[in-house]
Structure formats: structure tokens, C-alpha cells
């Protein structure tokens, strides 16, 4: 295997250094090296959004980012979303609206929703559906996910 490199980054507000081989994706390093298993793998080629993390303020498919590209960057994963004393409004909304069945897509949807609401605090339904179209869910038919994002948007603006 090619030589590993030290990558310095910030994850969920904490400085983190890790070793990564050039071929390793950010998804692989998060899950296998850093034990951040909340980020999920559905396809490994950028088509499902299960691996969505926020990288320098933008939602990205971590399976399409090489780990070494995280050098100097700021990452947010599902593990960093909840405050210490409870859940984030988006998480509460997903629970309250029953917006998950199997739940494998949920971390990715929550990260994409967080990125959306940070950019647009009161999106229309069409904007929600457009923004989340990169996240696949096979269980819910999306209806309750859209309701959850609407509820979360109200929580964010209030």
C-alpha cells in the first residue's frame, strides 16, 4: 500500500489528526479509522447520499471525497449534530414526524437538511424536495421526511 499521510482537520468542532492512505475515501476513514459509524454507506459512488457530511459548510458525499482532501478542513458528521442536552430540532422533527423506517438513510438526510436550513431557513416544499434529491430513501416515499424538514424549519426560524 502507498505511504500513509497525516491529515489534520476539525471534526464536530474538535481538532483531529489521522493517518490515511491516498486511496482511502473520507467515508472509509470516518467509519473504519475514526469509529464515526453514524455516517452510512449505501453505494460508495455518490448516488445515494447516505454518507453525507458537511465539509466546510457544504453537504458532500463523503464516499466521493478522498480522506487526504480533508486536510485543513472543517467536518461535521451526524455525531456532532445533537447538543449535549438533548436533540437538535431536526432530529426531534424526524422523530415526531416518523420520518424514518429502517433509518439507514436518516443520518444523511439530517446532514443534508442541516445544510439546507443553514442556507435557507424557510424553504418551500419544492426547494426542500430539490435540495434533498441527492439523498435516497427506499422506505418512506419521502412524504414524512418532507414534513419533518418543514417542522424543523419552523423550529429553526422560531
Amino acid at each position: 500500500m502507498a505511504k500513509q499521510r497525516i491529515v489534520s482537520t476539525s471534526i464536530n468542532g474538535n481538532p483531529v489528526e489521522f493517518l490515511a492512505a491516498p486511496r482511502q475515501t473520507l467515508l472509509e476513514v470516518l467509519r473504519d479509522n475514526l469509529d464515526l459509524i453514524g455516517t452510512k454507506e449505501g453505494c460508495s459512488n455518490g448516488n445515494c447520499g447516505a454518507c453525507t457530511v458537511i465539509f466546510n459548510g457544504r453537504p458532500v458525499d463523503s464516499c466521493l471525497v478522498l480522506a487526504v482532501e480533508a486536510e485543513g478542513g472543517e467536518l461535521e458528521t451526524i455525531e456532532g449534530v445533537a447538543p449535549t442536552d438533548g436533540l437538535h430540532v431536526i432530529q426531534d422533527a424526524f422523530l415526531g414526524q416518523a420520518a424514518l423506517q429502517c433509518g439507514i438513510c436518516t443520518p444523511g438526510f439530517i446532514m443534508s437538511t442541516k445544510a439546507l436550513l443553514e442556507e435557507n431557513a424557510s424553504p418551500s416544499e419544492d426547494e426542500i424536495r430539490f435540495h434533498l434529491a441527492g439523498n435516497l430513501c427506499r422506505c418512506t416515499g419521502y412524504d414524512k421526511i418532507v414534513r419533518a424538514v418543514q417542522q424543523a424549519a419552523e423550529g429553526v426560524t422560531n
Partner: peptide, 14 residues
């Protein structure tokens, strides 16, 4: 639910 919205639920690959 809480485990599933916080990324703590452990699936097969985890």
C-alpha cells in the same frame, strides 16, 4: 428513534 437520528444505531456494517 433517538439512536437512529443520532447515528448511534448499529447496522450490519458497523
Amino acid at each position: 428513534g433517538t439512536d437512529k437520528v443520532t447515528g448511534r444505531a448499529r447496522y450490519g456494517a458497523d
